[in-house]
Structures are given as C-alpha cells and as structure tokens.
Nucleic acid binder design. Sequence first.
DNA 1: TAAAATAAAGACAAAAAACTCTTTTAATTG
DNA 2: CAATTAAAAGAGTTTTTTGTCTTTATTTTA
Lengths: 145, 145
Amino acid sequence: MGLFSKTCEYAIRAVFFISQKTSEGGRVSIKDIAVGIDSPEHFLAKILQDLSKRGLVQSAKGPNGGFFVNENTLRRPVAEIVEVVDGNGIFVGCALGLKECSEKNPCPLHNQFTTIRDEIHSLLRTTNIGDFNEELILGINSLKR
Amino acid sequence: MGLFSKTCEYAIRAVFFISQKTSEGGRVSIKDIAVGIDSPEHFLAKILQDLSKRGLVQSAKGPNGGFFVNENTLRRPVAEIVEVVDGNGIFVGCALGLKECSEKNPCPLHNQFTTIRDEIHSLLRTTNIGDFNEELILGINSLKR
DNA sequence: TAAAATAAAGACAAAAAACTCTTTTAATTG
DNA sequence: CAATTAAAAGAGTTTTTTGTCTTTATTTTA
C-alpha cells in the first residue's frame, strides 16, 4: 500500500507534468501526459476531468487544445490535489481505523500518528504545485519511473 | 485511504487485544477478539491464521483453547505486524508510485517523504507489541471505536 | 469414547479500485 | 461547412480488497 491511492499518484504526477509544460509555454494532450508520466491514458483522462471540474487544471478542446494550468494553480498547495482525489483521511483519520479515535478516546497509536499526520499535512500544505517546475525542466526530478 | 490496509488495522488491533488478555492471564477466542476489536469474525480468523503461521501469535484448539502471545512477542516491534500483513511498502516505496525513485533519480517529493517514511518506520520499530497492555487494561486506550 | 469447543481451511460473494474501449461534444482550420 | 483534432462522457471489464458461510481437523472433558 502506498500513502496515496494509485489515482492520486497519477493525479499529482499529471498536475506536476502539466505545470511544467505550462511554464515552458504550451498546452499538452492527454496522450502526451500519459506518456510523460507513464500512466494508462483513458484512466488518466477521467482523473483530469475531475481535476478540471475542480479548477485545478484548465483544458481546451480541438486542435492546439490540451491541458494547462493558470497562475493561481501554480501557487496552490499539493495538499489540494490529495484532498480532491483521496479526501482528507490521510491527514485526520485514525491509524487503526477507529471511527471515534480522539484525544479523549485514543487508540494506542493515537499520539504518535497524530504527529506523523500533522507532518504530512504541513508538508503538503507548504509545498506548492509550481515548486518543481525548474527541477523538472532541468531533468533533476522524474515523474515517469 | 488509511495508512494501513483494513487487514493490517485489524491485525494490529487483534494482536494488541490478545497481548492484553495474555497479560491478564488468559486465552481468548476468535469470537471474543472480534467483539473486542469490532471486526468481522471470519475475516479476522484468516488474519490470525497468518499471524499464527509467522509465530506472532500462538493458538490452541479445543475447549479452553484460543489465542495468546508468548513473552517474545511482547517485545517484538509493531513494525513486524505491518511487515507481515502489508509488506514494507509503507516504509520504503515512492510516494508517487515510481518504481525507480531514488536519491539518484528522485521524484519531486522524494526527500520530503523519505523523512516522513523514516519517522513512521522508526516509530513502529521502537514501539513494542506489549507496550500498551497497562493502558488497555486501565481502559485508557481503545481498540474498538 | 462421545460430545462439545475451538481453530483451520476452503469456497464463495460483495464492494471498491484500477483500467479499457467506444461514442459524443466542442473547437479549429482549410 | 467539412474534416480534423482533442477533451468529455459513458459503459463496460478486470483485479484487488474486504467480508461471509460452510466444512474439516484437533483438543478437551464428561
């Protein structure tokens, strides 16, 4: 099990990819994104439809269409992608799956995992979608393998 | 998505429960464990069979049979339960699902999540199965809701 | 030794997640 | 305005995870 669902992994990689391509000055098709991040094309299409509805990415149909992001998206935290796709369970849920786990009624691992989850949340809230464009352009970071 | 699979959540809760009951001096049946941790009885039975094969819990058939743990198990880290059930993916995998993500070929979130994963690993390696028996007996910790 | 208690095992079933394929809609361009 | 391009939408399929039900094997005890 990963930290995120497969859908969410594709979503983050796709948004980073689109963000990079936008910063390089172009739109990019689903097919090119799928190749660029090594994901199933039609599955990815569904994910991008959702992200598009939520305004996290922009799209245009027809020739020279494709996906791109606006300036606002570049400054949004990565946490927003995670919330749209996987919800906030990774930030707030109980590690042992208890519905009513809390400070008052804690599972044995409550305190330890509250700390961990807070760190994950804080990391994803302070990291913005556009933060990796340079590294991606320079090839320092990978989205593919 | 939780951090662990449902199977793993049940496994950890069950082992904690058995550990507590053992420390109180008795064996405990699958049915009682299922009630005690609020899990599906027969699904839990499968999980306990696996844990039993791996030596993490002990079992005995027949009247006055049931599950219990030995002294050794009480000193084993919680990480062992996770490794048996979910593997070590949560400790070592790439947050974005890349197969070849590494220091040499990092995904954009590689460094941040290496830190997070190390913390999770270290937390689960330094926390032992028997560490919560007292809190559980006193009712300070919950395994049920 | 028969009955009862209990875990082990196996075969299904349901639900969720991951993935594929086809058709429709919208935009562009010659 | 016809042809082309590309996203949107919809209807599946496959795989994995989660959960149920029934039968079998083992142990104890009366």
